[in-house]
Design a protein around this nucleic acid. Structure first.
Length: 668
RNA sequence: GCCGGCGUAGCUCAAUCGGCAGAGCAACUGAUUUGUAAUCAGUAGGUUGCGGGUUCAACUCCCACCGCCGGCUCCA
């Protein structure tokens, strides 16, 4: 017995397994109303059941442009892919095959390593299945029956899954398509023919149930659309996005380099990259001053006992460079974080409530031995510099201080035109034992950061298990040019490091009593390395004038204008601009082309006419030729743009949605 | 760290079945003196990532290492 609720709001009850196709035929007429409403999402391409509730299935219309419809399509395509693979190769075991933000994957176990070279054959087999256009048929079975089905098919991963995660489900569903049957929650498209265009994109290893101690499976990624044009556009967007990759641009624009001889994951900032970073540093320093932070400097190493006290060493022993051992009693660790050092500054003398809040700021370099496979350009490195600070405050001051940190982070991102970030509330995972401190402290801390985020109007997404081991945090997460998410700014609340079990921090309260301060760890950029990496992609290398490594290039039309070009160059330099001039004996067009390709914001063309009248012909990288104007006017124009930190162009709209799993089309 | 792929001039890429390592751009030199996205000519540039092995012969095949790329795991 199944109750079906239709998009129109009608409900109908069936006493046999129904496919979306059956129902559509019976009640087609009554769909008219819903169909009209759905037109906004593009052409209607079918009807399917939505995520089933116990004993009930809701029907939904599949429309071309609806993201959830795409999810349904893609998950069905994952089934088609799995079916094709099972036709082609022996001994294929199925694990999970959900959708991602931009496609789908299926994890399989198969003796034979599948490589990109196998894609054409798999795609050809998939095309056959699509052309056959067989329906997806839903089969509901009791848990026992389901177990028997999976056992008889030898699908051991499905068996384990039913016995563990699905232990509490009395009934389970399968979807059958021809000879292929798969344990699956659905929903699916009515039949394979609705898959207008698909493509396998990559293959990778993935651990069963995400556990690196367990078996590694082969994960095949693909994507699918209702029509070929959308697929082509998608692939084109990916190509375009690749051109913004900070690793490519970093090389082409001489921003940074990595030398295997220096070491993997260690960034060498070239003059142009260092200039961008330097401007960001100045910007942050100004903000710190305004917000009454105090600068400190601390060394790059510290005795191992320091990190044993903080609790970091035992937690992260594997991801640190091995200690430097002077003798048995004296071992030093390359600083993996700045907090213990700043805590020692706090502890260097007795503190009273009058000292608080104490805000200690440092651009602190830290080193972490990340696994080799995790390294990636500037965004995941082994040595980096945090725009770090630690705030020591009274419990009463926590909310204001936390809010101040959130607002500073927002200000920095706003100033750079970075809008496509999300704020993630990192909460503890109640099931894990990695967190230190009592439940009461954690509950308080988590409640305060929630309240602060609400009070500043942030829509934060809470995620369990994303907290630091010492406290909850609010992370600013951005998406890079190929859809990967990176944590940039972070504000973390910490009741633990000040505790008696750790560093036992104190201050004298108003009643002459010994009180525990609360710590806030915060870094608006996160690290200069990762931030600049993301920033390169955000601007596609075309930095706003205030950040541009080379702000202006003077282009003499010919050798006859070299003297005047030098005058102009010197005048701009004297006004504090980062300026160069192109004295090669190239044609003007060639000099312009090179300056454009190097993304120089302004070009000042100077020829005999300009020399005579004391003008420069301004060329804007974006707008083109702005015509001649007096040199003073040009300088004033540029100065204003720098002072305003004007952002004229960004590219950070992600090419594809973040690779998060959508609700539609998931496995159980 | 794990799975898979890749590594040829500064950059982008060729080199058929294992048979003389090549092109464009950049660089350098000379000519040219140019007004808003590529002037012409010449020169130089290589232990094919590193080290072994197979072979008459290795960029090409095999082994180990290093590095990079896509994922997974991890991310204080």
């Amino acid at each position: 017995m199944l109750t079906v609720s239709l998009p129109s709001g009608d409900r109908k009850t069936y006493d046999r397994p129904v496919t979306a196709g059956d129902v559509a035929a019976e009640i087609g007429a009554r769909l008219a109303k819903a169909a009209v409403a759905a037109q906004a999402n593009g052409k209607i391409v079918g009807l399917t059941e939505a995520l089933p509730q116990e004993g009930e299935v809701s029907l939904r219309l599949l429309t071309e442009k609806d993201p959830e419809s795409l999810g349904v399509l893609r998950h069905s395509c994952a089934h088609v892919m799995a079916r094709a693979i099972m036709r082609l190769y022996e001994g294929v075991l199925l694990a999970f095959g959900p959708t991602t933000g931009s496609g789908f994957y299926y994890d399989i176990d198969c003796e034979r390593p599948i490589t990109q070279d196998d894609f054409p054959a798999i795609e050809a087999e998939m095309q056959k299945i699509v052309d056959e256009d067989e329906p997806f048929e839903r089969l509901d079975r009791s848990r026992e029956e389901a177990l028997a089905v999976c056992e008889s098919l030898g699908q051991s991963f499905k068996v384990e899954h039913i016995e563990t995660e699905l232990a509490s489900h009395p009934t389970l569903s399968f979807y059958r398509q021809g000879e292929f049957i798969d344990l699956c929650r659905g929903p699916h498209i009515p039949s394979a023919g609705r898959i207008g265009a698909f493509k396998l994109t990559s293959v990778a290893g993935a651990y069963w149930k995400g556990d690196s101690n367990r078996q590694q499976l082969q994960r095949l990624y693909g994507t699918a659309f209702f029509d070929k044009k959308s697929l082509d556009e998608h692939m084109e967007r990916l190509e375009e996005a690749k051109k913004r990759d900070h690793r490519e641009l970093g090389k082409r624009l001489d921003l940074f380099t990595i030398s295997p001889l220096v070491g993997s994951g260690l960034i060498l900032w070239m003059p142009k990259g260092a200039t961008v970073r330097g401007e960001l540093e100045s910007f942050i320093k100004e903000e710190l001053k305004k917000r009454r932070y105090q600068p400190v400097y601390t060394p790059n190493i510290g005795r191992i006992e320091l990190y044993e006290t903080s609790g970091h060493y035992p937690y992260y022993a594997d991801s640190q460079f091995p200690p430097i051992e002077v003798d048995q009693n004296e071992r030093y660790l390359l600083k993996p974080m700045n907090c213990p050092h700043h805590i020692q500054i706090y502890k260097s003398r007795p503190r009273t409530y009058r000292d608080l809040p104490l805000r200690l700021a440092e651009f602190g370099s830290v080193y972490r031995f990340e696994q080799s496979g995790e390294l990636s350009g500037m965004t995941r490195v082994r040595g980096f510099c945090q725009d770090d600070a630690h705030i020591f405050c009274t419990p009463d001051q926590v909310a204001d201080e936390f809010r101040g940190c959130i607002e500073m982070t927002q200000l920095v991102l706003d100033c750079l035109g970075m809008k496509n970030y999300r704020v993630r509330l990192g909460l503890r995972d109640p099931k894990s034992d990695k967190y230190v401190g009592g439940d009461e402290l954690w509950d308080n801390a988590e409640r305060s950061i929630r309240e602060v985020c609400e009070s500043v109007g942030i829509h934060a997404t809470a995620e369990q298990g994303e907290a630091a081991f010492y406290g909850p945090k609010a992370d600013f997460v951005v998406t890079d040019c190929i859809g990967r998410e990176w944590q940039l700014g972070t504000v973390q609340l910490d009741y633990n490091l000040p505790s008696a079990a750790r560093f036992d921090l104190e201050y004298t309260g108003t009643g002459n009593s010994a009180e525990k301060p609360v710590m806030i760890h915060r870094a608006p950029l996160g690290s200069f390395e990762r931030f600049v990496g993301v920033l390169i992609e955000h601007f596609a290398g075309a930095f706003p004038l205030w950040l541009a490594p080379e702000q202006v290039r003077v282009l003499p039309v010919s050798e006859k204008s070299f003297d005047y070009a030098r005058e102009v160059e010197n005048a701009l330099f004297a006004e504090g601009f980062r300026v160069s001039a192109d004295y090669r004996s190239e044609k003007l067009g060639s000099k312009i082309r090179d300056a454009q390709l190097e993304l120089t914001p302004y070009m000042l063309v100077v020829g005999p006419r300009d020399a005579e009248s004391g003008t420069v012909s301004v060329r804007d990288r974006i707008e083109g030729d702005l015509g001649a104007m007096p040199l003073d006017a040009a300088i004033a124009h540029l100065k204003k743009e720098v002072a305003e930190k004007r952002v004229r162009q960004t590219f950070s709209a992600a090419p594809a949605p973040a690779a998060t799993e959508s609700a539609a089309g998931n496995e159980y």
